[in-house]
Design a protein around this nucleic acid. Structure first.
Ligand SMILES: [Mn+2]
Ligand SMILES: [Mn+2]
Ligand SMILES: [Zn+2]
Ligand SMILES: [Zn+2]
Lengths: 139, 139
DNA sequence: TCCTACAATGGACTGCGTCTAAGTCAAGAT
DNA sequence: ATCTTGACTTAGACGCAGTCCATTGTAGGA
C-alpha cells in the first residue's frame, strides 16, 4: 500500500491523513468492502473522517486504476484493491461472501464477431453465483 | 405475453388490469426497461397505475422466472422479458444501450474445480462492455 | 512562517426502491 | 345478479447509497 501512497504523490496529490487511512484499510487480498465499511474502519483510526471524503478518496483510487469497483446486485458497491491481476468474482447467494476467481482462457474470446454488432468490445465482467461451503451445510 | 398472463392465472393470481398492462409493456425482444420506464409506458394505457404496483408486478414476474432482473452499474435495474433463452449482455459505455448476446460454449465451464473453493456454483452472468457503432463514430 | 490552492467536512439533496395503512375489486359462492 | 372476502392497488412516508455544495481546514511550496 505504500506503493499506492507513492503513486498518489507522483500524481501531485496531497498526502493527507484521510487518504492514508483509507489506503491502509484497503490493504490486503480478497478485500471487498463497501464504502460505509471502509468509513467505519477508517474512523477507528481517524474518528472524524467523513463519508464524503471516503467516497472522494475511493473514487480517486478507482480513477487511477488502483482499486476496482465491484457492483453488487442492488446493494452497495464494493471496493477491491486487487487491481493488479485481472480476476472475476464468485458470490455466495446465501451470505454474500465474495471470492476472487481466475477462469481459464480469455472470457472475451467466447463472444464471436457475429455477436458483437459492430461494438468495440473492450472489457468483460463475469460473476459466478452459488452457495459457499458454510451455506451449503447450513441448508 | 398471453402466455405470461395464463401462467399467472394458473398460479391462482388475480388477473388485474394493472398486471395486464405491465405484461403488455414488456412484450417484445431486446427490451431492457427500468421500473420507471415500465411505469411511464403502462401509465399511457392506465393512467392511475402506481409505482408500487409496477414494482410488485415486476417482482412477481421475476420470481416465477418470466422476467430477468439486469443489474446495471449504480443505476436502476432493468427488466428483461427474454427469460426463455439464456443470454448475456453487451453494454455500450457511451450511451448505455444493452444488446442480448450469445457467447459460445458454457461460461460455467471456464471455472475449474480448483477455483470453486467448495462452492456449489449454479449460475454465471457475463457483461461485455464497449462502444456501440454510433458512439464509436461520435468519438 | 505565511499563503493559497486543494482537500475535508457535514448536511442537504437525489434516485431507486421498500413498506404501510387504507381503500378497491376479481372471482368464487349463493 | 349480488354478496363476500382476501388479495390487490394506492399514495405517500420512509430508508439506503451516493452526490453536491458552501464552508472550514491544511499540505506543501515560497
Ligand atoms: Mn476481487
Ligand atoms: Mn437481455
Ligand atoms: Zn455463504
Ligand atoms: Zn452507444
Amino acid at each position: 500500500m505504500s506503493d499506492l501512497l507513492e503513486r498518489l504523490r507522483e500524481r501531485g496529490w496531497r498526502l493527507t491523513a484521510q487518504r492514508r487511512v483509507v489506503a491502509e484499510v484497503l490493504d490486503g487480498d480478497h478485500v471487498h468492502l463497501t464504502a460505509d465499511e471502509v468509513h467505519a474502519r477508517a474512523a477507528r483510526r481517524l474518528p472524524e473522517i467523513s463519508r464524503a471524503t471516503v467516497y472522494n478518496t475511493l473514487g480517486e483510487m478507482v480513477s487511477i486504476g488502483e482499486v476496482i469497483e465491484v457492483a453488487t446486485d442492488g446493494r452497495a458497491k464494493r471496493y477491491d484493491p486487487n487491481a493488479h491481476r485481472a480476476h472475476q468474482h464468485l458470490v455466495c447467494a446465501g451470505c454474500g461472501t465474495i471470492r476472487d476467481v481466475h477462469p481459464t482462457g480469455d472470457p472475451l474470446a467466447a463472444l464471436p464477431d457475429t455477436e458483437r454488432f459492430g461494438f468495440a468490445v473492450s472489457a468483460v465482467e463475469v460473476t459466478y453465483r452459488g452457495l459457499c461451503p458454510d451455506c451449503r451445510s447450513a441448508g
